[in-house]
Amino acid sequence: MSIQHFRVALIPFFAAFCLPVFAHPETLVKVKDAEDQLGARVGYIELDLNSGKILESFRPEERFPMMSTFKVLLCGAVLSRVDAGQEQLGRRIHYSQNDLVEYSPVTEKHLTDGMTVRELCSAAITMSDNTAANLLLTTIGGPKELTAFLHNMGDHVTRLDRWEPELNEAIPNDERDTTMPAAMATTLRKLLTGELLTLASRQQLIDWMEADKVAGPLLRSALPAGWFIADKSGAGERGSRGIIAALGPDGKPSRIVVIYTTGSQATMDERNRQIAEIGASLIKHW
């Protein structure tokens, strides 16, 4: 067993022997301040990774656009098919120029040779490549099948209805392509620590998230040296922004954090800054 596999296998073990965790309302004060600064709703939840206990939450059962955070769930569904012998990570998928959609920095470079399922998941999570996500959605049967996968996990809230990039439209009061912070946090925890996926697939999923290259201005910008984070960000229309993450000190994750916002007129930089400040408060009061 590799060191990384050992780390993920012992996530519940280490967490069980940690000192009790206590909620700190100071972080919620910052979440509410972010709402004021952005002029928009902000949803927040913080779960203990081992027990699933909610440590703090704000608007945990209000719907927010998922945006690209759905790509972690998508690759979880792909990995479940791999575990069941219905898919192979090494299978190569070929596609054409007509398949390319807006923001496809990886797939646009491989029109000639195609990409493997493993490479597509890596591109979808680490670079948020939209064509990679659409190609992977095709392998599982489309958005409705991802929703069905989530329902089978016990998540009857999260739903995907459309493809990239239309799913980022974020129309107010439109339930399409949305989740709730509580539902997303619980589902992410199941994917990373539950028995739904094999140990190898859980490790692969967290490795992809740990290698995320496009979430630097968010929670990662607030992390002290030595902290662990595996995350996936999302951005959408109407001032929408979000991030889902597993993080913790001492090089291992111990909490799940989900943050979503929508309806702001603020710039992307300002949305990023507010999420980073929430992260800084979380870490300060850990």
Rank of each mutant, 00 (worst) to 15 (best):
H24M: 11
H24N: 09
E26R: 03
E26T: 13
L28Y: 03
L28E: 02
V31P: 13
K32P: 08
K32G: 08
K32C: 10
A34D: 09
A34S: 09
E35D: 04
E35S: 05
E35P: 05
D36M: 03
D36S: 12
Q37S: 09
L38T: 00
R41G: 09
V42Q: 07
V42P: 10
G43F: 01
Y44M: 03
I45A: 13
L47D: 02
L47E: 01
S51F: 01
G52V: 09
G52M: 12
I54Q: 06
I54G: 04
I54H: 10
I54R: 07
L55T: 08
L55V: 09
L55K: 09
E56F: 12
S57A: 05
S57C: 00
F58K: 03
P60D: 08
E61M: 02
E61V: 06
R63A: 06
R63F: 13
F64K: 05
F64S: 07
P65E: 10
P65G: 03
M67W: 11
F70I: 03
K71G: 13
V72W: 02
V72Q: 00
L74A: 01
G76D: 09
A77L: 13
L79Y: 03
S80P: 10
S80C: 06
S80T: 14
R81K: 13
G85F: 07
G85W: 01
E87D: 00
E87S: 08
Q88F: 07
Q88Y: 12
G90F: 07
G90C: 01
R92V: 13
R92F: 10
R92A: 11
I93Q: 02
H94M: 13
N98K: 12
L100D: 04
L100F: 02
V101R: 15
V101T: 15
E102N: 02
E102K: 00
Y103R: 08
S104P: 06
S104Q: 02
V106K: 12
T107I: 03
K109W: 05
H110V: 01
H110Q: 02
L111T: 07
G114T: 12
G114K: 05
M115N: 04
M115W: 05
V117M: 11
V117Q: 07
L120K: 10
L120D: 06
C121A: 00
S122H: 06
A123R: 05
A123P: 02
A123Q: 01
I125R: 03
M127P: 10
D129Y: 02
D129P: 02
N130D: 14
N130Q: 15
T131F: 02
T131G: 11
A132Y: 09
A133R: 01
A133W: 02
L135N: 04
L137W: 04
L137I: 06
L137Y: 00
G141P: 04
G141Q: 01
G141L: 04
G142D: 01
G142L: 00
P143A: 04
K144V: 09
K144G: 06
K144H: 01
K144E: 08
E145S: 14
L146S: 01
L146D: 06
T147C: 07
T147V: 08
A148V: 03
F149S: 05
F149Y: 14
H151G: 04
H151R: 05
M153F: 08
M153E: 08
D155W: 11
T158L: 10
L160D: 14
D161G: 00
R162P: 01
W163M: 13
W163K: 12
W163A: 12
E164R: 00
P165M: 02
P165D: 01
E166F: 08
L167H: 01
N168V: 07
N168M: 13
I171N: 00
I171K: 01
I171D: 01
I171L: 05
D174K: 03
R176Q: 05
R176C: 02
R176E: 00
R176D: 01
R176N: 00
D177L: 08
T178I: 13
T179R: 13
T179A: 15
T179L: 14
M180Q: 13
P181C: 01
P181R: 02
A182F: 05
A183C: 07
M184H: 12
A185C: 11
T186C: 04
L188Y: 13
K190T: 15
L191E: 13
T193W: 09
E195G: 09
L197P: 12
L197F: 01
T198W: 01
L199S: 11
R202P: 02
Q204L: 08
L205K: 01
L205Y: 02
L205N: 06
W208N: 04
D212G: 14
D212R: 14
D212Q: 06
A215H: 15
A215C: 15
P217H: 04
P217E: 14
P217Y: 12
A222D: 15
P224N: 11
A225V: 06
G226N: 13
G226P: 05
I229Q: 10
I229D: 12
I229A: 13
K232V: 15
K232Q: 11
S233R: 10
G234C: 13
A235W: 14
E237W: 04
E237D: 04
E237R: 01
R238C: 01
G239L: 10
G242N: 09
G242T: 02
I243R: 11
I243P: 09
I243A: 07
I244G: 11
A246G: 10
L247E: 14
L247K: 12
L247V: 08
G248W: 06
G248M: 07
G248P: 08
G248V: 07
D250N: 13
D250Y: 09
R255P: 11
I256E: 07
V257Y: 15
V257T: 15
V258Q: 07
I259Y: 05
I259P: 09
I259K: 14
T261G: 13
T261Y: 14
T261L: 00
T262F: 08
T262H: 12
G263M: 00
Q265A: 10
Q265W: 11
T267H: 11
T267A: 10
T267S: 08
M268P: 15
D269I: 13
E270Y: 15
N272S: 09
R273T: 13
R273D: 09
Q274P: 13
I275E: 09
A276Y: 14
I278C: 12
A280I: 04
A280D: 07
S281F: 10
L282M: 12
L282F: 15
I283D: 14
I283K: 08
H285W: 02
W286K: 08
W286N: 07
